[in-house]
Design a protein around this nucleic acid. Structure first.
Lengths: 234, 234
DNA sequence: TATATTACTGACTGTTCAGTCATTTACGCA
DNA sequence: TGCGTAAATGACTGAACAGTCAGTAATATA
């Protein structure tokens, strides 16, 4: 009836929605192809606008990239920090909670592509790299290190260098993410993330070596193993 | 005296040496800037030739990239496999040996940039990614998994899923490499690789939880910790 | 020393793509 | 209903760069 029906219009004004849509499209493509190989024409097309419109909202490709990173991760790290503040009870429980919460909200999500992107591009964009390091990585590090230190103080964990331990616990988690976004497509044995994380938690708490009475064996006690030629455990 | 002295020549013929020099230059620049951001003019310049010469030896940028990857890693994985064949004695010793040999010959070397490169680019070059996966990653995986299975059979390690354990042991190693080639420059606390690897070996063998008599504590036994809500240890 | 061969050069081409801007279209408001 | 303005367009520009090739200079051979 109405000759000016919505369908007739070549486009509509949607000032409010554009930035978020453009950022979502950009995240998809950056993750899929990497920064350099992503064309802004494609980003615009996926967001349903023309390239000119993109430039109304972002002044350059680099600014768009920054915005994507910023908006993707700020809320997440804050959530982790809240978990730490509010937690009561044993440290290993908190650790477990953080590991799986992180996987559900980042790893198993589109956002999981951001760390991969940052690892790939941070040398080409040191400024963004520094931003990501300060706002995400270092805060994540501090978070996990606090958990460990709490556990060591209470005697729940044996005492060791918390800085290195923190890195060794986070490494397999981040590595899983990177793997998913790079070589997973080659891998015939697809990794079950829950099982991987479960076994990770198990290994770092129990170690590879059998507990004293678990079964007979010819192995040396753990202490000796850890004191090889370069033994440096302070 | 001699008017045709070597210094007077604009260039000399060095057919044999060119490919290796070009590949070395390319490795440097690919690692430093990534694949897309590396210009072939710069590669040629660093190798002391013109771009035309580069094309005498490599038919395209992608072919050059492949050649760099291929020549860098083939010898290394073979060395690891030889270690496994020849080894006598406890598995943890072999593991230790592999970890540090790998670090010395790859991690602490220009070659250490290759894994970073491959993680960054393998989605853009699936063919090269597949090649790298088949020739390097899967062989590395098989190697470490054999070590673990040997140790489990002898009772030196407690039995668990060797595929996942293998990944969890390799992850912090590769992660260290990736870190070095990306965020390390942001990090005020530079990681001491030996110490990191040492603590890694220690943690996976001994775990975080204190041994029975180490000290009093309020922690739960390790078995309980590993059997949380999603317990899936087969 | 003269000639043939080929490693090497570097200016050139064609393409791709970030970023621009004159024009067109939607829409709030009088 | 028409007018002003702001949103959106898409053809265009200029720079960067992979890949080419006609020409040049080093070296082998005679």
């Amino acid at each position: 009836m109405n000759p000016q029906h919505k369908q007739d219009r070549r486009w509509t004004r949607r000032k409010e929605a554009r930035p978020a849509e453009l950022m979502a499209a950009a995240l998809d493509l950056f993750v899929e192809r990497g920064y350099a190989a992503t064309r802004l024409d494609d980003v615009a097309a996926r967001a349903g606008v023309s390239k000119g419109t993109l430039y109304l909202y972002f002044s350059s490709k680099e600014e768009l990239f920054k915005a994507v990173i910023r908006s993707g991760i700020v809320p997440l790290i804050e959530r982790g920090e809240r978990l730490l503040e509010e937690h009561q009870g044993p440290a290993h429980e908190l650790m477990r909670q953080i590991v799986f919460a992180w996987w559900e909200s980042v790893g198993d999500t589109k956002l999981g592509g951001i760390p991969k992107l940052m690892f790939s591009e941070c040398r080409n964009f040191p400024e963004i790299g520094k931003f990501y390091y300060d706002e995400v990585i270092s805060r994540g590090h501090r978070l996990m290190q606090s958990v460990l230190e709490t556990g060591m103080k209470s005697g729940e964990f044996r005492s060791m260098d918390a800085n290195y331990a923190m890195r060794l616990i986070l490494a397999p988690m981040v590595y899983l993410l990177l793997w998913r976004h790079s070589f997973d497509f080659c891998d015939s044995k697809h990794i079950d993330a829950d099982r991987y994380l479960e076994q990770h938690l198990d290994m770092i708490t129990s170690g590879l070596v059998p507990r004293s009475h678990d079964q007979n064996n010819s192995s040396m006690p753990a202490k000796v193993i850890s004191m090889g030629k370069k033994g440096r455990i302070r």
